[in-house]
Each structure stands twice: as C-alpha cells, then as structure tokens.
Design a protein around this nucleic acid. Structure first.
Lengths: 64, 64
DNA sequence: CAAAAATGTAAAGTATACATTACTTTTTGT
DNA sequence: ACAAAAAGTAATGTATACTTTACATTTTTG
C-alpha cells in the first residue's frame, strides 16, 4: 500500500507530529505508515480523507 | 463503520460464503463485518472496492 | 558550525482484524 | 412440513495496527 501523506504534508508544510495530532494517532504511527511499515486501519484512512478532503483512493493506493 | 455489503450481495444474489471466497477471507469475517462486529482492514476494503467496481466510500461509511 | 527541530527506528505491550472449528438458528426450496 | 442451505455466533489462536518510551540520525535554522 502506497500513500501520499508525505506530499500532502509538504503541500501544507506540516510535520509528522502535526499530522499525527490532527489524526489523533502517535507520530510513530504516521512515520511507519509513510515508510510503508504497515497499512492504516480503515477508520484512520477515513480520518485522513476527511482531513485532506480527498477520497481514500487519492491518498492510499493499492500497489497492484 | 456501516457498509453496504449485504445489499451488494443481494443485488448479485451472492451468499456470504461466495463473497468471502471472492475476497479471499473467511465466511465468518464477512458475517462479522456485515454485522458491524469489526471494520475491515484497508487492504480488504480495497479488494471489495475492486470487486464491486465502486469507491471504498460507496461501500463503507464512517458513521458520523 | 552548533543547536534545535524533525525524522527514523527499536522494543515491549495492547487492541483489533482475521482464521479455524464447531455448533445453533434462520431462511429457502420442494 | 421437512431437508438443505445460509446466516449467526462463540472460543481460541495468530497477525497486524497502534501506543509508549527511548534513543539515534538527519535536516533545518540562527
């Protein structure tokens, strides 16, 4: 599962810590998801989609 | 998290077992998700979206 | 360049997604 | 009504999402 969190953060000039707080998860969770260590849960994916006002599919991509 | 799996199955006249096989999970997993016992993982949500040719948000809804 | 901020990473623990087995209840078809 | 199929449910086990603490490395800024 790939994702655009790093780019979306960069566009807004947000740190991992700021995004983590906005999504109510730990900074390590954001870091791990950005680095592809694991996939977010569906509820967390929904939270991110709401935050960025994007579709889940626009943020997270099933890599084939 | 609400979902339309039961309706989508009904439209296609599929059993829980058939949907489970198509998504490569157990029948109990489908049953539990339909009954709201737990949310699917993001990868499973993507699989369902591909199968039904719908957006994840069209199948699963964050209840407020 | 030095300090500070941001990012990366690791270990250990908790919560939840999912499997398997097995059984009960409900629905469907003849 | 009866049998068969489908759906519901429960217990136990495993995998993974996520937390917390802690520290190392990289990047940014004065």
């Amino acid at each position: 599962m790939k994702n655009k969190l790093k780019v979306l953060r960069a566009e807004r000039d947000w740190t991992q810590a700021q995004l983590a707080e906005a999504l109510d998860v730990s900074r390590q969770t954001i870091n791990a998801i950005e680095k592809g260590k694991f996939d977010p849960s569906l509820p967390l994916a929904f939270k991110a989609a709401r935050l960025f006002k994007l579709a889940i599919e626009d943020i997270f991509q099933d890599e084939v």
